[in-house]
Structures are given as C-alpha cells and as structure tokens.
Design a protein around this nucleic acid. Sequence first.
DNA 1: AATGAATGAGGCTTCATTCAT
DNA 2: AATGAATGAAGCCTCATTCAT
Lengths: 191, 191, 191, 191
Amino acid sequence: MAEQGYHHAQISRIARTAGVADGTVYLYFKNKEDILISLLRQAIGRIVEKLQERMDGVECAEDRLRVLVRLYLEELGGHPQMAMVTQVHLRQVDANIRRQIGDIMKPFYRALDDVIALGMRQGVFRENVNPRIARRLIFGTLDETVTAWVLPGGKYDLVSLADDVVDVLLHGLSRAPAGIPSGEAMDDRPG
Amino acid sequence: MAEQGYHHAQISRIARTAGVADGTVYLYFKNKEDILISLLRQAIGRIVEKLQERMDGVECAEDRLRVLVRLYLEELGGHPQMAMVTQVHLRQVDANIRRQIGDIMKPFYRALDDVIALGMRQGVFRENVNPRIARRLIFGTLDETVTAWVLPGGKYDLVSLADDVVDVLLHGLSRAPAGIPSGEAMDDRPG
Amino acid sequence: MAEQGYHHAQISRIARTAGVADGTVYLYFKNKEDILISLLRQAIGRIVEKLQERMDGVECAEDRLRVLVRLYLEELGGHPQMAMVTQVHLRQVDANIRRQIGDIMKPFYRALDDVIALGMRQGVFRENVNPRIARRLIFGTLDETVTAWVLPGGKYDLVSLADDVVDVLLHGLSRAPAGIPSGEAMDDRPG
Amino acid sequence: MAEQGYHHAQISRIARTAGVADGTVYLYFKNKEDILISLLRQAIGRIVEKLQERMDGVECAEDRLRVLVRLYLEELGGHPQMAMVTQVHLRQVDANIRRQIGDIMKPFYRALDDVIALGMRQGVFRENVNPRIARRLIFGTLDETVTAWVLPGGKYDLVSLADDVVDVLLHGLSRAPAGIPSGEAMDDRPG
DNA sequence: AATGAATGAGGCTTCATTCAT
DNA sequence: AATGAATGAAGCCTCATTCAT
C-alpha cells in the first residue's frame, strides 16, 4: 500500500522544511514530541504575550474579544506551518503529550475565561451564559476556522475573517435578542 | 524465550474491541484507513438520517438547530469510542484521507448550511452573518464540546449541554442585540 | 567508510541467523538487550543445572573441577553462536546490562567458589591460595580458552582441551611443588 | 529552541578526556577504530619494551613470569582508562579490527610463549604442559583479573594482587604435586 | 591547528498487513 | 469464516565523521 514513492516521516519532513538534515533536529530538540511541544509552547507564548500588550488600554470585554480573535487568526494565519502543527500534528492520542498540551494551552484558555468573566462583570455579556460553554464557543469557532483554512492549503487571508467571526460570537445567529431567562419571561406575561 | 504480550497497535485494539482476531478485521475492511472511514461514514450517515426524521415537522430554523445540536451530542455522547475516532484518530495528515473525510462530512455540513439558509429566508437568523462562518461557529462549537468531553474520558452526560450550546449559538455572548446592519440602517433613515 | 555492501545490524544478524524477519524477534523478546540477556541466562542456567546433576556423586574437589571445566567447554563448544554471544556481544559498556550480567553469572561463580572452598576444606587445594584469585584463574582460563576458540571460527573440538586445562589449573606451570609459605621458607634456609 | 546537551558518544568522551573538540581528534587519527587500535598498540608496545628492560638480568623463568605479571598489572592498573579500552571497547565483533588486535598482541603473546618455553628448557616448568594452554592460563587469568578490577570502577591497587596471581599460576590449586608424567614415569622405574 | 555545528548512514523498533492453518 | 504468528517497510534516533570558519 506504499502508494507514494516517498515516505511520510514527520521528522524528515520537519527537517526538510527547516532546511537541515534529520540528525540536526536532535541538536536542538530531545525528540519528536519535544519539537511539537516546543513549537506549541512558543506559539501560545507569543500569543499570550502579545495579548497582554494589546489589551493594555482596552477596557470593554467586547473589544478585548475582538483583539483576541484578531490576534489568534493573525498569528496562525501568518505561520501556516505552525498552524499545521497545532491543527494536525498535535492531534494525537498519546496521553502524555495531551497532558502537556493542556498545560501549555492553559494561559490562553485563561485569557478566554478572563474576557468572558470581565464581560459578565461589566454587564456587557449575558450573565446566563455558561462560561465553560462560552469558552468552547470561542475556541471551537477559532479552531475550526483555522483548520478549515490551513487544511486546503491556507490560500486566503485568515485575518480578514476576524470581524465576521467576532460578530457571530457576540451576537449569535438569531435575529431576535436573547429572551429574558425563561422563568422571568413567564412572569412578564400580561394577565 | 521471554514471550511478550502483544502490542498496543490501533488495529489490535480495534480487533479486540470487536472481539475478533487481528486478521479477521481484514475480512471486512480493506485496511485501517477503510475502518476509520467506514466508521465515520456510518456515524454521519446515522446522524443525517435521524436528522431528516426529526426535522420532519419542525419548521422554525431555530428549532431545527436545536434538534441538530441535540442529535449530534446524543450520537457522539452515546458512543464514546466513535467519538474517539472522530475527534482523535481521524485527525491525521494524509491528504487522501482528508479528502474522503470531507466527502463524508458533506451531508452533515449541508444540513448545517440548510438550517442556516432556512433561518435567513425565514428572517429568523440575521442575514448579514457570513454563512460559511456560521457553519464554522456551529460545527466548531460542537466539535470542541465533544473533544473537551471525550479526551478526559467522557465522564458526564454530553446531551445535558445541548440547550446551553444552542442558546449561545443563537444569541452569542453579548447582551446588546446585534447592531442594525449598515445596509438597512440606511433605509431606515428618515427622509 | 561503509566498506561492506551490507550493514552490521546485530538484530538483523540475529534474526537472519534464526531464519526469521527482524520484526519477528520482537514477538519473543522485549528488545536487543533482552535477547542477549535471555540467551546468557539460558546458557548459564543450563550449565548450572547440569553441573548439579553431574557433581552428584563426585566427592573430591579436583574431580569436581574436572567436571566443571569439561561441562563449560562442552556447552560453549557445542553452541558456537552462543559462545559468540557470551564472548563478544555481551562485552559492552552499558552499565545497566553489566549489572544484569553479573547477576546472571552469580550462580556459576558460586559454583566455582564452592569447588574452591570444598577443595580447601578437604585439604586437596592449597589453603594459602587467595580464593578470589583462584576463581579468576579458573574462569579467566576458561574464558580465554573459549574466546581463542570461537573468534577464529571455532574450528576444533573445544572439549578435547579439557584435561590439559584442568591439569594446569590444578598443578600450575611450575615443576617444583608450591613452596611452604614464604615466611617459613626463610626459616628453612640453611645456615 | 530547547538547546540540548551533547551526546554520550565514545568519540565525544575521548575528545573531552583529551581536552579537545570532537573534530580535533580527526587531525590525529583516521577514525575511531584507529584511535582504539593506536591506544592498544601504544600500551602493548610500552609493556613489551619495559618487559625487555626488566627481564634483562632475570634468568629464571619463574622470576620472568613474576616480572611479566607485575608489569602487566602495573601498566593497566596505572591507566584505568586504558584498561577500559582493552577490556571493554576493543571487544567488538568487526573481523577487521580483530585481525589488527591479534597482530598488535602478538609481541606480548610471544613474550608469554618465550617465558613458557624458557621455563621448559630450564626444567623449571613442567614439560608436559600444553604451551598454548599455558599461554591461555596466564593471559586469561591476567585478563580476568584486570576486567574484574576495572569494570566496577578500579577501586583498589591492582599490583598488590601480583604475587598471589603468580603463585597460583606457578603452582596451581592442588596441594598434591603434579603426577609424574606417564612417559618419564616409565623411565623412572627401577631396573 | 582547532573548532563544533551539521551531516546522514544505519541501527533499533513498531505496527499495519498477510497467509498458512 | 477465523486465526494470530510472521512479516518487512518505514519511522525515530544515534553518533562517527566532515567542513566552513
């Protein structure tokens, strides 16, 4: 079944991408896992760092979300190879790696949670939204957006989607505003 | 002759799960790829089929979305092993598989697109939402929800999240209603 | 410097020697180390076991030594490939393996020590011989004998050397009998 | 860029021991094999050279053996790293190296053979000892003695064993003198 | 003469797949 | 139809060797 004339070795690909020999990779990384983890750590580190800078004077949670979404798409959109790593190569089963990935993602997840919590404190975000699900809404949408962009080859400008993504995250699909929580809605009914 | 236990290969696990020997698997499937693809095809097939049944008398796009989200979480929440397949094992690089996955997912994506288009026609969904991004919003959130459930071991009831997920998909995070779309805003101007 | 047309892989050689494919080896052994260690364990186990049988009715330490030497040369002389393992492949640096080798050899060393101690108790062996050095005398001579036989290709009958080896171990090189311990020898000097 | 420490390769250790960089080694030696072989040649050369000096006025074969044993243990006991080379690193399979090692060892083996032959001519050594086996007795015992010393770390004074080693080589283990050789026994018969 | 980062051949090991039973 | 021992291609990694500085 070796339909291809050449092999799919990840290390060989990484090395070739970096323009070095296979062995050279091991001068800088302990093993394959270390490469992927290091790349993710670096990417997330950059994002979280820039996030703090850019959010500095931004008060409103909505604007902060806008900054966050734009930055995320900017960073991955600007580094397609990195996007391949985060969206494809790191989706493996090995429990040990998964734990490490979780640890590395934590600061970014916390940034999401902070924006969500801030928005609720500010009264800008609806308080009857489950914060965990809010996080998955944001991250899931970003993740799917990046995946749908990078897998076919990353052919358009990812950042150009930022505004539309933020819009739908903030306001959802529905034209009707969110109903006042169901219990209270009953009470509001006239006689 | 320090006889060793057998290995942790995916095929061995699949065979053991099915209660057959490794070789038996190849009486029913062409190769490992074929197994995973077949499982996905079957899962998506079931979902799409049930979707048509359940949506039969449901007119409103919002309700249809509710049905869709609930069904998706039901199906994957009820088959954790299948969820592992869709969320983990199928996330590989091989371009050939990716194309097949795309083909298999198409009916489900079309169902998403149909709901979105219907909602817009009905005036229930905002028409200035980018439909592609709307799809990624829904699918990304579902996907992330399932992943965040299955990876740590699938320990809670996934369907119980359905209502909260639908709520946030429909109404977003923001308390303020979506701004009136610029185009219409013009029309609304007096004089 | 790859002067040879083919590679020197140990595992490949072992597998080819056993008439199986490389991968087959790993159905029976955990790794390369496990193969070598298992082979040694098996060889030493056989020797120690047979030793106990053959020494059963043998009282005199000299005769026991004769049995031991003959058996050792018999076993390694009868399994040249095993001899290659013990005399060549196992002489590596890895501290971890070395420790395991030491543990495996212990029963055989103990057998040597037992014969030596018995001989001394019986008054058959000289009591002013350092037992540790006696062990090295016996084992070193056997080891060198086997190495000198196996390296050039194991072309003669190793066991045929047994009697001569035992003779020299028992009586040494010197024609003169062992002097009475040196201190006393002084006293013996005339005038 | 998780910069890693450098590897544990033999060449790196040799270079570090010599206080130079890895590449520098190749200004003085053709390859790793050449280093090991050169070290052995040098060590054996020194031993053979000193041997000739020290044996200059020594007539008796027994005393010559004493000198030889002491010198060998002195040289290796005084250079533990060299001992590691002779006892561990040089024990490899490559037939090409083995041949070279044989050539280098020849002068030392010849010295052994000379002492043995001298002793027999002098009537000091038993003439019914197989000279080849006598050589293996001496070299095997020395080799095992050095190995048993260097592998665990070379923690005691190797030369202090010299007298005991010589004693057992000359007089063997047995208290009883060697039986009068059958041939001569005939001659000894009265009338 | 010296360096040490880079190289890449080749070793060990895994695991999807085959095939004799 | 089912088995599972055996296979061997291909992946990861090591380390002796090279070469630009």
